[in-house]
Computed example of a mutant assay.
Amino acid sequence: MTSHFTLDGAAPLDHLGVIRASGPDAATFLHGQLTNDLALLDTQRARLAGYCSPKGRLLASFVLWKNSPDEVMLLCSADVLPATLKRLSMFVLRAKCKLSDATPDVQLRGLAGPSASTWLADAAPQTIWGRTERDGASVVRLPDVAGATRYLWVAPAGVATPELPPLSTAAWRWGEVQSGIAVIEAPTVDQFVPQMLNYELLGGVDFKKGCYPGQEVVARSQYRGTIKRRTYLFLAGAPVRPGQEIFHSADPGQPAGMVVNAAALPDPAGGSALLAEMKLAAMGDGSLHLGAADGPMLSATDMPYEVTTEAAD
């Protein structure tokens, strides 16, 4: 694949944005809206979570953390932020919670590799999804990619940025795809229940918490054995974009899956890495093609965590 390429340095994350929820009811309000448990979240951990429609389909996905007991930050794809902020705001009602777009007020950097760990020193979180602070910035440990440690660095405007080798946003986005953590972007809004994106495998769904929009559908999918689609990692020799359909050679008349995220390979040979949500039945014999039954062929590659390819009974 791209074994010679190493993620190392700091990358600007202009494709991401941040919603700030502030006030004494911020965590309580979000607890009733998202797929994960915010009631027990402290300032030392970050979490993956989804925001669903009443039909259980993801409208947005977040990495979220608390800066303080009264302030929660939600990182999401920038192209879904305005609509998500507007929709969430409709349900605040009498809760003591103010929602705002914090993107203009913060700096977002992805830090990776030995140089990042050295620069962070004692401030480097030791566990995945651990959160620390350094010079007023939040630092969240993200899952490793290709042997490289990765961190999210979020600081108020004006704080000095990390003095690290420059890393391109394109290279960082390749790492995001390689991590196996799917992110909802504008072309894939309202397409997937969380399990289709493996969110319950990644700790992004809490089945013991109370109600939230779409909770009954999500729970039914889990406990009635109706999970027949999962997300997998592929390589393609062509450009790929989120929302593109994928077809199986044995069933050219209907799509077998959809691209969730994609990134160009940081390799002179070109090509793309992609996360795609697929019918489990399509992951056996035959070939998979992008856009049409005669489109560019996809080759499956290993996910960084175990995903079943067998449909539930």
Rank of each mutant, 00 (worst) to 15 (best):
Y212F: 08
S89D: 07
A112V: 03
C97D: 04
G270L: 00
P166A: 15
N198S: 00
A300T: 05
E216Y: 04
C211G: 07
P266E: 11
A27I: 14
L298I: 06
F207D: 12
H15A: 11
D190T: 06
E71T: 15
A170W: 01
D294K: 14
L38V: 00
T309F: 03
A300P: 04
T43M: 14
S53F: 13
D37A: 07
A264F: 02
V154L: 10
L202G: 14
L298M: 04
S221E: 13
G284E: 13
D105M: 03
S89H: 03
A186R: 11
K96T: 09
P69Y: 03
T127N: 12
G113Y: 02
L85N: 01
W65N: 01
K98W: 01
T149L: 04
D267N: 15
S168G: 08
W119P: 03
M90D: 02
P166L: 08
R229L: 05
T35H: 11
T118G: 03
P296L: 06
L108D: 02
Q126F: 00
L235W: 14
V193M: 06
G130A: 07
G204P: 00
D302G: 03
A116S: 05
S117P: 01
V307S: 00
H4C: 05
A39Y: 11
C52T: 07
S249N: 13
A160W: 07
H31D: 14
A263W: 02
K209F: 10
F91R: 07
K279R: 15
A21N: 03
P82N: 13
L275D: 05
D122E: 13
T309C: 14
C52L: 09
L274I: 00
C76K: 00
L233V: 12
Q195M: 12
A21W: 00
E216N: 11
T2G: 09
L30G: 08
H15T: 09
T2F: 12
Q215A: 09
D206G: 14
A124F: 05
F29D: 08
S53H: 12
P166H: 10
K209A: 08
D37F: 06
G210R: 11
S89T: 15
C52E: 03
P165T: 13
G286H: 13
N198G: 00
T84S: 11
M73F: 15
D101Q: 02
G271Y: 11
T2Q: 13
G257A: 09
R109T: 01
L233A: 13
V92W: 06
P194H: 00
D144M: 07
S287T: 14
R94V: 09
